[in-house]
Amino acid sequence: MANIIEIKNITKEFKVLNRREGLIGSFKDLFSRNYKTVRAVDNISMTVGQGEIVGYLGPNGAGKSTTIKMMTGVLEPTSGEILVGGNVPYKNRTKNAQEIGVVFGQRSQLWWALPLIESFKILRDIYQIPEQNYKSMLELYQSLVDIEPLLHKPVRQMSLGQRTLSDILAAFLHDPKIVFLDEPTIGLDVSMKSKIRTLIHALNKEKNTTVILTTHDMGDVDALCRRIVIIDKGKMLYDNDIEHLKGFFGSYRTLKIRVDGDLKEQSGVIQGELPDMKVSADDEWISVLVDEDKAKVIDVLGQIQKSRSVRDMKLEEISTEEVIRKIYEEGVK
């Protein structure tokens, strides 16, 4: 698999004005400016193969957008090398633009007043898409989504979901090698989210387009990405398969049980019986966090049942969301 994106040790620094507080401070800022350097992206390296879908995750302000902007050519890295489809993006922005598609969840790039089909026609001319390819792309779209009601509707009259859908279709229209999707499902309802995930998945399969997906919705990640990259404070925290991620903190599962008596009190007793595990209680359940490398869930349940009867139980896998949250909060050990 050829690498479509190659990033080697890129760093991006911004100069930020150190603002003083209050009115007098602002006045002082007028005359003596005090800059500090902020490292938004710190020595990140990665390669992405053609046809991969990569989930690019990180808390707000982690440096995701900055990285995307460097890959799309809007920003020049302070240091390091970056190659997208063989181009250096910031040096050859126009050429790079021909090879990529970009969607920002909340910012439509379509012509506001025009019906979608007219936007498509203008894009066909701008990207100089051969007639044959254009037609087959429209046919593909028709087979994937119910595009007919969208085509003749001005973008400004569309719902957010329809607009996002249209933006994604427009981004794939010139058959780019890479599509960057920045929070494509933000603010959408459940059914629209799933529609959009299906569409992205299908387009990736059909056209072997590389997709770089930033999102805060773990549903997107679970549905689409096999590989995820996590950054925080500009530093790379994780770059691997999603299965690998779940085993990252040991193979934890949560055993939830309900017993007679006060749950809070009981959980204290159980904690005493199982000193190696974390036991907690809420209004409905007692939760026991079981590290499966150390003990089997069934044995733990057996041990609990020795001294009391369990009325109800359920078992919870640790979700991607929880793992990611743990990484954000605790970092990688």
């Binding site: 799309t72 050519g73 809007v74 633009a97 021909q98 920002f104 910012r107 790039q109 701008i126």
Partner: peptide
């Protein structure tokens, strides 16, 4: 508002693209 960024991703002259809108 930051919406200007949408003009930065097309393979045509930025000035032209912006004014043509």
């Amino acid at each position: 508002t930051g919406d200007f960024i949408k003009y930065c991703f097309r393979p045509i002259n930025l000035f032209f693209y912006f004014q043509s809108e």
